[in-house]
Design a protein around this nucleic acid. Sequence first.
DNA 1: TCTGGGGTCCTAGGACCC
DNA 2: TCTGGGGTCCTAGGACCC
Length: 384
Amino acid sequence: MKRIIFHIDVNSAFLSWTAVKMVREGGGDIRLVPSVVSGDPKDRRSIITAASIPAKKLGIKTAQPVSMALRTCPSLVIVQGDWAWYRACSEGFISICRKYSPVLQQFSIDECFIDMTFRCYGDDPVAIATRLKDEIRDSLGFTVNVGIGSNKLLAKMASDFEKPDKVHTLWLEEVPEKMWPLGVRDLLWVGKKTEERLVMYGIRTIGDLAQLDPAVLARLVGKKYAAGLHENANGRDDSPVETEFQEAKSCSAERTFEKDLSDPKDIDRALFRVACIVAHRIRREKFRASCVSVFVKYRDFSTSQRQCSLAEPTDVTAVILNAARGLLPDVWDGRTPIRQVGLGVSKLTHDPYEQLSLFEDPKMAYYREWDRKYDEEKTSSLNK
DNA sequence: TCTGGGGTCCTAGGACCC
DNA sequence: TCTGGGGTCCTAGGACCC
């Protein structure tokens, strides 16, 4: 049976969501002028998280440094992101989508797939998708694109066609006409590096890729990746819409400094800060971790990373920090200026029991108490 | 112009075991 | 003294996504 999948994608999500809030509070609509959402706009290293359509028309792109965009457009409106509000907007649009089909997979904060195979039976999928898009726009105040296809890949490719507030189809039979003329970079899973490599061999469009001998492609990009890429270029994808919630596998935090740092005291302070953030997050989700990693980014953007396993899983900040401190000499010589420091944990478990060793460090009780207070403060500042 | 922050998956090489 | 082959686990790095 022919599947019918919808991919729903919020147009310039963070920017639209910020605009909705500002309009509600009596402000102007930043969607109509060149505007962007960024991290801390005062931070000279801050980059653009989302750009309005007028900003994009001027050549301003997501992930571009704010300073660069300001040179393109000195009157650019810059607003700071608000994650709590974004999560609320995300929940709003997801729950409307879920009304249309319970077979829903959230792909990111602003995208989801729904399997409409049975819901569309005997109906026009485009009419249903239009109703869905209009309902989101009219009740929540922001627009989405809906892509319709016979699998997830085609639906996702279709939602990326003309924006905003549009419905597009990309059925298998439309692939040669609508997808093959596009550049390879437009295909999902083809990033910058792969594009460079493919173009070097004269493979410029998705059509070129589709017609390439899979064995040749395998030599270019590796066997497993090549197989998926070749299928996708031909519009084939049999992956199901995954409704199961995926447990996190890792958790990390990183901080980029205003200026590159080389004083070990500064680096240690940064390590402490990210350790607090990561440990707090895993405690909130009732996780404990048995692998800790530290990474640094240098001025030239090269990175270095080391990880180690712990004897037993932990959620205690001091234990995580201690492991990270032990790894630091392996990633950093203690002198070269560093742009960014990060800390991650993985091998997460939910095991409820606590293995209390008879020989447990007597300081542990103190550490746990410290963490408890930290969590309490975080929670209360959030509710203010 | 000067590049954030948070994830996932894959690969290749080394250690170690039989 | 020099040597095979297979399996598993771990780690570092690199690709991709939003």
